[in-house]
Design a protein around this nucleic acid. Structure first.
Lengths: 131, 131, 131, 131
DNA sequence: GTGGTCTAGACCACC
DNA sequence: GTGGTCTAGACCACT
């Protein structure tokens, strides 16, 4: 799975990594039980500090997306993923609110916005690496 | 317009202020030409430092949502708002992507996600203060 | 002579007024001895505070472009204008330097820049109100 | 690169810093990809507050002259510089207009003015530190 | 009174 | 170590 980082972004590197792994899961490129590269390997591949990879992995583990074993290394959680909790819905709502607010200001129609979302859902379902 | 800040949020305060003003515009609570409180007034109202308000205002000015007028003070841009540029669509896409990625992982259906968006659009259109 | 003010500009209003009067002189629209509107009149015309007009006039007087008489009012200096002093050349140089620096960065050719200057000179010589 | 500030100038310090960095680029002293001193280091070197430097850097970043890279720190934009847009030409024109207006009033010949410009262009091309 | 600028000092997240 | 954010308090130019 290819990963691209933006070192100018407001988003910290470790969160970009976390997001792209989650995206990989959503697209089905990463399936429950699949192994992930070691901290050291991924750090080298992305030319990033090991601490940064570690932080991303710890976050994913804490959220329940991956498991970290001393021996077997890092794997996508084989026991399923976190569910849609009320907490998650609240966070999702508060994340969407400013995006929708700005879109309305700029004159975007509801349907145009929904279409954008639909396209992204299709990208996830199709699973390809495609943009 | 009522504004509520979350000092514990990982979103910086100045961005929360920016977002809520944009939301106010989207809801129609703030119309082109409407005056905004002075930097110092709003700072006092929100129990926040002057510079934090200033940062929010400078950002909104740079984005084209407000004007800082030598006579009239700070006003909602009377000449209209920024349009839906390709740049904006790209940013929107990259902002939505991780949200949709995670939702898919958690097993959320496309329609459930779209419904969330629709509700937020309706909140903006109705214009009430409602959460 | 038409005057247009930009209330969003970084330039203070009184300096914009000063500049446009000097421009009027350069274009020959205002000749030595010509009367200028009274502070009160001009303030009303431009919807600007009297203090602002006063400041512009005081600056022009101090620089030697106009004279202010109790009785006859404000007139373009009939005794000629300030000359090209070393001080003026130094200021001019320091004002041009950042403009040229930025133009070079952006890839503007020397001739293209000089052409811009020539055009502005011609505008002044022709004297019209034309942009 | 040596930088000199005039604390008495009516130009704010952060703009002087911005201008001198742009000048450094124009002269070729600063090349795409070159690192700039950290906010705190430069602040100490110039005996100026950190925030003032930050303001200059943020401005240069927003204009596209530098990048703030999570790993490499602050660097001259390696992807090239902003182009000559219509917006820039308009700003340039409005910046030159009052300079040329006053020069005409003071009896400066067009060629004398252009010569001043040519000298500054040569300074930039030569690249020396020379005033 | 306004916004604009600057200082000094602090805490934080990130790398 | 870096930049990002926030505070408190100050001065200034402008309107």
């Amino acid at each position: 799975m290819i990963m691209t980082l933006d070192f100018q972004s407001d988003f910290p590197i470790y969160k970009q990594i976390r997001n792209q792994i989650i995206e990989g899961i959503a697209k089905g490129l990463l399936k429950p039980g699949d192994p992930l590269p070691s901290v050291r390997m991924l750090a080298q591949d992305l030319s990033v500090n090991m601490h940064t990879i570690n932080k991303a992995y710890q976050l994913l583990k804490q959220e329940g997306f991956i498991q970290i074993h001393r021996q077997r290394g890092v794997v996508i959680n084989p026991d399923g993923f976190p569910k849609i909790t009320d907490d998650y819905l609240a966070i999702l709502q508060e994340s969407l609110r400013p995006l929708i607010g700005e879109s309305v200001c700029r004159g975007m129609k509801e349907e145009a916005f929904l279409d954008r979302c639909r396209k992204l859902f299709q990208q996830m379902e199709k699973g390809g690496e495609g943009q």
